[in-house]
Every structure is written in C-alpha cells, then in structure tokens.
C-alpha cells in the first residue's frame, strides 16, 4: 500500500456560509500530504454522505457554524450508516458549546474541534484515529 493516501472530505452541512475555518483546515490537511475533497457550501446530509461514499474517504470533517450541529451531525452519521460507510471517521468543527460535545460523540463524532483549535492537533488527531486502511 505504498501509494495509499489518506482522503478527507471537508464538508459544510447546513446553510451557514462561513467557510473560513473549513478552508483553513483543508489547506492544513493538504500541507500534511492528505487528499482533501471539498464539497462547497450548503450541503444536505444526504449529499455529504453520498460524496463520502463516492470519494471513498477515510474521514469526513464537518464544519458547522450555524448552531444546527445537533440536527445535522446525527443525520450525516445515519445516512453514512445506511450506505454501509460506517468506517468513516467523523470530525466536527465550528462553534460548538462544550455541553453539546457529549451528544455529538454519542451520535458518532470521533472528535469535536471548537474555535481556536490548533491545526496541527487536528491533523494529528485525524491521522491517529483513522478507522481503516493499512489493513
């Protein structure tokens, strides 16, 4: 598997248009040698899950700043499961209050990164928690 690359879907579910964080994280992943598929703005959970399947990504990083994370994250996870893609590592970033983190983890998010999260930490966490590949 010498040519394997970690593939990450960076997605913006919901209608918020703040893509600064998503793009900065996408760049950090690229600079760490990962392949990033960026979906663009305003994606429905179905569109994100479908993109994750088609692109066969290892990771789906969801950026949500609208506050709709408790609605959107579980929906993305459910749709991924329905498509049999439950080995995709789910990360959530954005404006997420501490008290919502347990609910998001319960829903299937492996990591939650709030404002001011360190880029290197995000990349490290991602690489350390991949659920597949190398197998």
């Amino acid at each position: 598997m010498s040519h394997a690359k970690v593939r990450v879907l960076v997605a913006k579910p919901g209608l918020d248009s703040h893509d600064r964080g998503a793009k900065v994280v996408a760049r950090a992943y690229r600079d760490a040698g990962l392949e990033v598929v960026y979906t663009g703005l305003h994606q429905t959970p179905e569109e994100i899950a479908e993109a994750a399947v088609q692109e066969d990504v290892d990771v789906a990083a969801l950026s949500i700043l609208s506050g709709a994370h408790l609605t959107l994250v579980p929906e993305v996870v459910n749709r991924l499961r329905a498509k049999g893609a439950d080995d995709v590592l789910i990360l959530v970033g954005g404006i997420i209050p501490d008290e919502d983190v347990p609910a998001l983890k319960e829903a299937g998010a492996a990591g939650v990164f709030g404002p001011g999260a360190n880029l290197d930490e995000i990349v490290e966490f991602t690489l350390a928690n991949l659920r597949r590949r190398g197998a």
């Binding site: 209608l15 918020d16 506050g67 709709a68």
Partner: peptide, 22 residues
Amino acid sequence: DFPTLLGYDSDHERSRGEVGRL
C-alpha cells in the same frame, strides 16, 4: 436566519435545523 438569507422558505429541505437559529 440562513434560510431567509438564501431565499428558502422555512419548509424547504435545506432549511432543516436552521430555521430561526441565527
């Protein structure tokens, strides 16, 4: 809210979870 900013009614599919939020 975002649906209004993007010209979607509250009952549009893309508005789910966003209505009245921000």
